[in-house]
Design a protein around this nucleic acid. Structure first.
Length: 435
RNA sequence: GGAAGCGUGGCCGAGUGGUUGAAGGCGCACGACUCGAAAUCGUGUAUGCAGAAAUGUAUCGGAGGUUCGAAUCCUCUCGCUUCCGCCA
């Protein structure tokens, strides 16, 4: 959620965000500001009544109850109830409308109302050359008996799979590789140095196995509950399956106040994520590109406002480093205003080359939220000078395991269906060179 | 799932209807004392909203109710603890 005072002071930027993120039809800023005025006005009147009420209560304390005061008290009570009723009504629509206003975006975010306006920022790595016709991951998965969607269809329906055999070991190897790398301060420091992110802390990540569910209230405060059709709700509970570890990591410090010295706080979460994939019927049906359930390693951090933009760049730098360590060709996409999320001030995707599909596919995303999420989560920091302010949040994929295994399998395939193992993963697979 | 108890400030803890945003202690900050420190003493030390400020107002897990007046009484709800049941 944005600060109403920010909206008033930066009206144009907010209007740009509303228009360029595609919310023009849904949001009426004038109305929100008008509601805010009414709200302040009523709240002032209510405060005045309460003041009188408290004063009367104070007078009553020492003497015997005076009929006149009691009468006045009763009148105040009635009047206040009326005012509070009106106030609650206004407040409800005010908050509802204010919540709907998207975050403003950074200057370098391309403006555009469709994902066609996303910009390819950089293309890195050599696409592999094969002396045979490369297969897609599903063909290889079937050949090697690594992926079983037939039985999954029987048990759970479409968009589920049993992953088996060496492919499971491959996933475990990727997990171990990432966990070991990002908890290593030297590696974080090296990436910071390489990308000239001077001034950023080299603090390594803390690994987390988070809960896979979260309450409606927290999900909503994260501003990731919508669209609900894409979420799984637990029947009879105010609980949802998370669609990304970010949802449970970002909300874990809700209502807390950090000391400035504790920041940055960096988490590396590993969790299975769940998505209904509403509105994608018939899309990406081959293999395991788009599943209802997939495992993911996710980065999340809490920082001060001065370092949050660089932290976002660090997250992208880490993503690139991870992809490069696996020797995968990729490109960096600067997402346009339409494609970054409602709470996001900037968003970068990384797309890895998939020879089996003959195209780049999104494997990573990095979101920079400024204080948009923390305002409703009420996650704050006490600065060295004693003042309180909202923290800034960042999240980013380390690896979406399903998609990164697709990338490894397709890029490292050999004519006989075996897979060469990227150097960086070998030590986690008994030193083997292929699977 | 059943039963009981409990949820107060950074922490501990008092407070069962009337200036209680809340005693006391710990912690922390500043000051005094000291060559310096410890000890001691003094002062200060929650957050939101409105306001330039003075100040006002709200907040004692959350929501609602009773009352002229609620941290205190009632209802619901969330969380924690203990016992029983079940269980990876």
């Amino acid at each position: 959620m944005l600060d109403i005072n920010f909206i008033r002071a930066h009206r144009e930027r907010v209007e740009d965000a509303i228009r360029n993120k595609g919310y023009a039809d849904e949001i009426d800023l004038d109305h929100i500001l008008q509601l805010d005025d009414e709200r302040r006005n009523l709240s002032g009147k209510a405060d005045e009544l309460r003041r009188e009420r408290n004063q009367i209560a104070g007078q009553m304390k020492n003497g015997k109850p005076e009929p006149a005061l009691i009468e006045r008290g009763k009148a105040i009570k009635q009047e206040l109830a009326k005012l509070e009723g009106m106030l609650a009504e206004i407040e409800t629509s005010y908050i509802k409308e204010l919540k709907a206003v998207p975050n403003v975006y950074e200057d370098d975010v391309p403006v555009g109302l469709s994902e066609d306006e996303n910009q390819v920022d950089e293309v890195v790595g050599e696409k592999p050359v094969f002396d045979f016709t490369p297969k897609n991951h599903y063909e290889i998965g079937l050949q090697r008996d690594w992926i079983d969607k037939e039985r999954a269809a029987k048990v759970t329906g479409a968009r589920f799979a049993y992953i088996k055999g060496d492919m499971v070991k491959l996933q475990m190897a990727v997990i171990n590789f990432v966990m070991n790398s990002l908890t290593n301060e030297a590696i974080v420091a090296e990436i910071i140095k390489k990308h000239h992110l001077t001034g950023l802390s080299t603090k390594p990540f803390v690994t987390v196995l988070p809960p896979l569910m979260l309450r409606t209230e927290m999900y909503d405060a994260m501003d990731r509950l919508e669209p609900r059709e894409d979420r799984y709700k637990i029947e009879g509970e105010e609980l949802w399956l998370q669609g990304s570890a970010e949802h449970v990591l970002g909300s874990m410090h809700s209502g807390e106040i950090f000391d400035e010295a504790e920041l940055p706080i960096r988490y590396l979460g590993y969790a299975t994520s769940f998505r209904q994939e509403a509105g994608t019927y018939g899309k990406d049906m081959e293999g395991i590109i788009r599943m209802h359930q997939f495992d993911k390693l996710e980065m999340e951090s809490f920082t001060t406002k001065e370092t949050s933009r660089q932290e976002h760049e660090l997250f992208v730098a880490i993503q690139r480093w991870l992809v490069e360590q696996l020797g995968l060709p990729y490109r960096v996409i600067k997402k346009c205003t339409y494609d970054i999320g409602k709470p996001d001030a900037r968003g970068i995707d990384i797309e890895v080359w998939l020879p089996g599909q003959g195209k780049y596919r999104e494997t990573h995303t990095a979101d920079y939220m400024t204080d948009y999420q923390s305002r409703r989560l009420n996650t704050r920091v006490r600065r060295a000078d004693g003042t309180l302010e909202l923290v800034h949040t960042n999240d980013a994929t380390a690896f979406a395991l399903g998609r990164i295994m697709i990338a490894i399998i397709e890029n490292y395939q050999q004519a006989d269906g075996s897979i060469r193992i990227p150097e960086a993963l070998r030590k986690y697979l008994d030193g083997k060179e292929s699977l």
